[in-house]
Amino acid sequence: MNAADEVMDICLLAGEIMLTYGAETYRVEETLERMARAAGFTNVHCFTTTTGIFLSFEERKGKEDLMQMVRVDDRMQDLNKVTEVNQVSREFTSGELTVEEAHERLESIYHSPVNYPIWLIHLAAGVAGGGFSYLFGGGLGDLLPAFIAAVAASVALVEFERYLKVRFAAELAAAFLGGSAAIFLVFIGLGFNLDQIIIGSLMPLVPGVPLTNAVRDLLSGDLLAGMSRGVEALMTSLSIASGIALSISLFI
């Protein structure tokens, strides 16, 4: 395999990881262009949307241009991986890493599991739910039911996604179960402010990463990517809203 091919591979791998796990579009483009330039190629161009990356560069004048694309199907949130790829690209650009070393590091990032164990994520969702139910005007007595309901929603989200593999259905089901748990807990006398408990239990499902990235993308001129990210956030919000609407109209 020749050098240009190798560099193309690590660039696209880096881009794929970043885009999948929630980096902004401009960051992906900038990182890839920097890495390709640092490897000594000219005429570097990168075009990224929310669902794919195109990268082209020229090995030397007169030789044919290289051009490749990757398609990114999944979009998840794992900001730790974005940070690590950022670090690798920084070291590669400054010449501290060779192409092979960079490839190894990227592969290990690609295959590494989530930064935190799954039980900790569920627990964190519970803490976040409880905290926000208080901030939105609930009482101290609502902390525990909001915690339980948020954990239920988080577990439901992860488990439904594992078996159904349909994101929007999983979000709808998670919102439905979280809301139902909240209604049930208030019904048996645990907790008082139903509205605040439900809001708290839904907060962990809020699409924070796509929303923030949409604003950033639109502002930096990546209009296509910004719009599509915004629509993604909107669809998540809509599936959460329909899930909770379903549980409210069924049980109240």
Binding site: D78, Y116, L123, Y134
Partner: peptide, 25 residues
């Protein structure tokens, strides 16, 4: 004070959900 403590806890919870690196939590 209670609100600040709860905000702090809730945001760290969110940080774990989004898998923010440890040194930024």
């Amino acid at each position: 004070l209670i609100e600040s403590v709860l905000t702090f806890a809730a945001i760290i919870g969110f940080g774990i959900i989004f898998s923010v690196p440890r040194r930024a939590l």
